[in-house]
Nucleic acid binder design. Structure first.
Lengths: 192, 192
DNA sequence: CTCCCAAGTCATCGATCGATGACACAAGCC
DNA sequence: GGCTTGTGTCATCGATCGATGACTTGGGAG
């Protein structure tokens, strides 16, 4: 797989970018342990030694490959944030990661401790902080993490488990169900 | 780690069982790729060749290690099933798997396709079928898989991401929140 | 055209992996 | 005690891994 047919034959920046793209695809599909630097280099059609010259080590390449900036959550209502997050985390088509979210990519490579640390940081400090701020009542952090669990779980069911219904259901069908769940979490417990 | 201090020195059944226990722990903590047969054998204090003699291959050992029978869901109300499932999948203390559910262990080793197939089968055909049967209205499969996503997500948040709130919250605090979510999924959409 | 630096290649290292087959040794039986 | 059977060990194979350093080659500057 040559990422770009017209890649110049001796262009450091282009080659580095092509290696990064190939690494993202490989890591997304096969995880960290299942991917070798020789595979990545072969995808680009280049010598494996270039990986170490440009990125230092396989670890550094992975770090740079799965790095993604967390979008500034538009400070709207809980409904708006839910819709944005579901779209961004679950349904956004990340072509560079084979259609999966970097969080799922990291999850697939969660054998290493640093990856788990990055996961926790990106999720809890990044995506879920807004939810915790919006939840009123007791234990907002716990309820925010339950939203995170739901979103992560949906991603896992679609990308890893490949469960039939969730994989085929479009965004328009999944969103209202998720909205009902988040709304139920926001309301105080009903004591009839 | 010798599983049992008084293990007889030449006892095939006991040695095999000890290898299986050690394999479960290693696979649970480090995943399939991160675990070597030499590690497992060293845990038991035995030669690595015994692994192949008793189990055939590393793959076969993994298959046997993560095999778990799905409990027959007591055919009670949706509330009862939810409580049972949350306890069994998320909060049951599986000592033999370092406290984690075999589903999470498989998830940590999901690089191989057969593992993903087993995951999908055990989850959708096993755990979630009961939910789909209990859900009235449209798209019961989708809603059942959303329950599965929630449970799997909670397991991931606790075991992999190690998110603070969900990890520390006891069963008694998490269960009512999950109950509210499942109940919201069961009710027909509210159109005020 | 030539020179020179950067881009890319080649050979190779040491470690580790799963796996195999020949071998050593303890236990039960006679 | 000698023999058989089965439990466990040892040495080793071939492949693959990440990583290193010396080497080659292309392309722009002069």
């Amino acid at each position: 797989m040559l990422t770009s047919m017209e890649r110049k034959r001796r262009d450091k920046a282009a080659t580095r970018a092509a290696l990064l793209d190939a690494a993202r695809l490989r890591f997304a599909r096969q995880g960290y342990d299942g991917t070798g630097v020789r595979d990545i280099a072969a995808d680009v059609g280049v010598d494996p030694a270039l990986v170490f010259r440009y990125f230092g080590s396989k670890d550094d390449l992975f770090e740079e490959a799965v790095h993604v900036e967390i979008p500034e959550s538009a400070g709207g209502s809980l409904t708006d944030i839910t819709a944005a997050l579901l779209n961004d985390v679950v349904f956004a088509d990340r072509q560079e990661f084979d259609g999966e979210h970097p969080l799922i990519v990291m999850l697939r490579s969660s054998g290493r401790a640093e990856v788990r640390d990055r996961l926790r940081h990106d999720l809890c400090e990044g995506y879920l902080r807004t939810f915790a701020d919006h939840f009123k009542g007791a234990a907002p952090d716990l309820r925010a993490e339950l939203v995170g669990a739901l979103l992560v779980g949906i991603g896992v069911m679609r990308s890893v488990v490949a469960s039939p219904a969730l994989t085929q259901a479009p965004y328009e069908e999944t969103l209202p169900l998720v909205q009902r769940l988040v709304a139920a979490l926001d309301q105080p417990p009903a004591h009839p």
